[in-house]
């Protein structure tokens, strides 16, 4: 985990959550920019997790390896679900779904950071 990257991704997640949350409040469905924002974020999260796994195979180690791997894999799940729901549900409720999954991702990233920090990089 590279702190600046992780926190940038977390901020991107929170921004997406705030934006689609506002969209839900305004009774709007998820728009194209928001959708791609989520998609690109998912891609970047995937890269980050893969890099972390490679480093774990190498010199890096974390105290709770199983938990860390579960979180770094699990953090990739919510956004695709939210994006799929945003496509399926073209109402404000799709925005609610995307916003809440983005919040979950941000929280999981925080937990990932804590787990990584506890180890030796």
């Amino acid at each position: 985990m590279f702190d600046p990257v992780l926190f940038t991704l977390m901020a991107a997640g929170l921004l997406l959550a705030a934006w689609s949350g506002l969209w839900a409040y305004l009774r709007r469905p998820v728009n194209t920019v928001q959708w791609w924002w989520g998609a690109v974020l998912t891609g970047l999260l995937t890269v980050q997790s893969v890099v972390a796994w490679v480093r774990l195979i190498g010199p890096a180690s974390v105290p709770e390896t199983v938990t860390f791997i579960a979180y770094s894999a699990g953090v990739l799940i919510p956004l695709p679900v939210g994006l799929w729901m945003a496509r399926l549900e073209r109402t404000r409720w799709g925005s609610v779904a995307l916003a809440s999954t983005a919040v979950v991702v941000a929280v999981m990233l925080l937990r990932l950071w804590q787990l990584w920090r506890a180890g030796s990089a």
Partner: peptide, 19 residues
């Protein structure tokens, strides 16, 4: 037009199911 977001049966149900 404004999307049909007043259908409480399906929209919120999907959002809840996601969470």
């Amino acid at each position: 037009a404004a999307p049909d977001d007043t259908d409480l049966e399906s929209g919120p149900r999907r959002a809840l199911a996601t969470l």
